[in-house]
């Protein structure tokens, strides 16, 4: 295995954890997502040399792991509430999520935004990524990234100027 790629893998861990945390918004879930992500990346180590941007790829895996995590939680919740409702609504799922760390001002500021806009704001403001990289991670087009970033920043502007 290429030594520099291994060092890149090690150095990207903090960024991946931060991203997992911004998605899950609590330490416990973020740790689980982060661990699963690292295992997945490690299992794909034979392909590392073919990846153009390891960090971006790692972030995409983090997001997909989070989405799978959410789906599993949704299924569990559906089973638990199955007798009462046909299908749990998204806001109902959020009620069951442990959002224990909104002490982070940044997360509480972007919390009212839709998930995708939160992700874009995070990747641009905190990780300082280009539109193309954000588009690659979130599997949308660069122009969509720009539109959502515009909306997210407009929200921030409105709320900070109150």
């Amino acid at each position: 295995m290429n030594q520099s790629l291994y060092e890149k893998f090690l150095s990207s861990q903090s960024k991946l954890y931060r991203f997992a945390y911004s998605l899950a918004k609590n330490v416990s879930d973020a740790k689980d997502i982060h661990q699963d992500t690292l295992i997945k990346i490690w299992e794909m180590r034979e392909q590392w040399e073919r990846w153009e941007n390891m960090e971006a790829y790692g972030m995409r895996i983090t997001r997909n792991t989070y989405l799978n995590f959410q789906k599993a939680r949704q299924r569990r919740l559906h089973l638990e509430l199955g007798e009462l409702t046909e299908k749990p609504q998204p806001n109902e799922i959020e009620k069951h999520m442990v959002i224990d760390d909104l002490k982070h001002q940044f997360l509480s500021m972007i919390q009212p935004l839709p998930q995708l806009q939160q992700n874009i704001l995070y990747l641009r403001e905190v990780e300082e990524l280009e539109y193309k990289e954000i588009a690659e991670i979130l599997e949308i087009s660069a122009s969509q990234v720009k539109v959502y970033l515009f909306r997210g920043r407009q929200f921030i502007k409105t709320n900070t100027q109150k």
Binding site: Q13, S14, Y21, H104, Q105, F106, L107, I156, K157, T160
Partner: peptide, 23 residues
């Protein structure tokens, strides 16, 4: 400027690091 708190919050969040955990 009114944006100061937002940028400060971004900078604070950048300091968040991986907690030591057992795999």
């Amino acid at each position: 400027v009114s944006e100061q708190p937002f940028f400060q919050a971004v900078n604070e969040f950048k300091l968040l690091d991986t907690p030591i955990q057992e795999f």
